[in-house]
């Protein structure tokens, strides 16, 4: 008898002698012995499949061995298994400058990304930092520029046009944006309107 079966009997007694089987085939005497029923087989097959996915994901995590076996699922598992692999020595940020007469005014984007700075930064990287490749970038920039103009106008700030830029500057312990200055930063023009 496997250790613990006695506990289960006690458990059933505590339940007023009601037999339990996860598949509704109650019989106290055989509940915990391995029975080759269809459902049981499927259940164990799924467990083994799950373990195979784990092994494949771990192999990719440790050895970068990519299997063709259920790659989408393995990849999902890998993403649960291997966060925070790297770091950067610089900061990046999407920056929008509003045109007012001849002046350029930096627009505060915090109200449009009302999340923690880390989350905002990842979201911006995926939209503007060239990490998402599937969309028409220029068309999307135009949509975003129009949207920001409209949202700013609703808040009582009007601009003749906008410049969308991607800034990259060295990290500093003195503050996240301390070195976000043109002389230290690498600035890439994304879009200008009109």
């Amino acid at each position: 008898m496997v250790k613990g079966v006695c506990d289960c009997v006690t458990l059933r007694q505590a339940q007023g002698g009601v037999a339990f089987s996860p598949f509704g085939t109650g019989n106290n005497q055989i509940c915990y012995t391995f029975r080759v029923t269809f459902l049981r087989t499927v259940q164990h097959a799924l467990i083994i499949l799950y373990l195979c996915v784990l092994v494949a994901a771990f192999a990719y995590t440790m050895l970068r061995l990519r299997t063709t076996f259920m790659w989408k699922i393995v990849q999902f598992e890998y993403m649960m298994m291997a966060p925070y692999q790297s770091f950067a020595k610089f900061n990046e940020e999407f920056t929008v400058l509003g045109h007012q007469g001849g002046d350029l005014v930096e627009i505060d984007l915090a109200p449009y990304f009302p999340v923690l700075l880390g989350e905002r930064s990842i979201r911006e990287s995926n939209i503007f930092g060239g990490r998402s490749e599937w969309w028409d970038r220029r068309a999307q920039y135009r949509v975003f520029a129009e949207r920001i103009l409209a949202l700013e106008e609703r808040s009582g700030r009007t601009y003749d046009g906008l410049t969308l830029e991607w800034w990259k500057w060295p990290a500093s312990p003195d503050g996240y944006r301390t070195l976000k200055q043109r002389e230290f930063a690498d600035v890439k023009l994304l879009y200008r309107t009109p």
Binding site: Q85, F87, A171
Partner: peptide, 28 residues
Amino acid sequence: LGVGWQKLWLPTWQGGEVLPYSLITRWG
């Protein structure tokens, strides 16, 4: 298992530099 053991070979985790830089970038 993945989080811990990958750090044994990931080039960026072979020295302490990863920590101060992680602390002063976007999540700090």
